[in-house]
């Protein structure tokens, strides 16, 4: 556990969380970017068959594509405001689904898993202008576990790949 310095640990975790909330919520709310929602989640592969664990308001979603489809078909537009978030390191050396050769620690924090908790408000809009004016803000709390994106670790990986992906997501309207 002592392989990563405390400041690296906090820096990597908070930066990852910051980047995540800054990109994920705008994607959910914007009709133009919704098609990329599924790309925020881990993908099961032969080597690593694990699926993301997604629960929205107590409803278990079996697959990220289901989440994306729901946003595409049932939520024309939404505006999320992240009013508070916090994060902790969970495991400095997250090895789920890795080859035996890749089990070693990483000093730069690239193998960390991170838990993020967000508290904020959301407005769901219908399409018409009138509805927009009347949409009321609801409070939500959402917890994520982010894990490293193995594809992004590869030196030959395409640029712009997300470095962290959602392994676990739990959304709840609290107001």
């Amino acid at each position: 556990m002592a392989d990563i310095s405390e400041d690296t640990e906090v820096k990597v975790a908070t930066d990852a969380a910051q980047h995540f909330v800054d990109t994920f919520y705008p994607t959910l709310g914007n009709p133009k970017t919704k098609a990329t929602i599924a790309s925020f989640y881990i993908k099961p592969t032969l080597v690593s068959p694990q699926r993301p664990d997604i629960t929205l308001n107590g409803n278990v979603m079996t697959d990220p594509s289901e989440v994306q489809k729901m946003f595409e078909t049932q939520i024309p537009k939404a505006f999320y405001e992240v009013q508070s978030f916090d994060c902790h390191l969970v495991n400095p050396n997250y090895n789920v689904g890795l080859d035996d050769a890749a089990l070693g620690p990483n000093k730069d924090g690239k193998k960390m898993s991170i838990v993020v908790m967000v508290s904020g408000s959301v407005k769901y809009y219908k399409t018409s202008e009138e509805e927009e004016a009347r949409a009321e803000a609801r409070g939500f709390t959402e917890t994520f576990v982010l894990v490293p994106n193995q594809d992004a670790q590869n030196p030959k990986a395409a640029k712009g790949l997300k470095r962290w992906l959602i392994q676990s997501q739990n959304f709840r309207l609290v107001l």
Binding site: M1, Q50, D53, T55, G58, V90, N91, P92, N93, Y94, N95, V96, L98, L103, S113, V115, T141, T143, V145, V147, Q167, S168, N170, R172, V174
Partner: peptide, 27 residues
């Protein structure tokens, strides 16, 4: 409202499982 899910890949304090151990995430 209390929710609870299993979560993989936690640190094994006994040091025996390099791939980590399972735990729970509770909100």
């Amino acid at each position: 409202l209390i929710e609870c899910h299993p979560i993989p890949g936690l640190v094994d304090p006994s040091g025996q499982s390099p791939r980590g151990v399972d735990g729970l995430i509770i909100t």
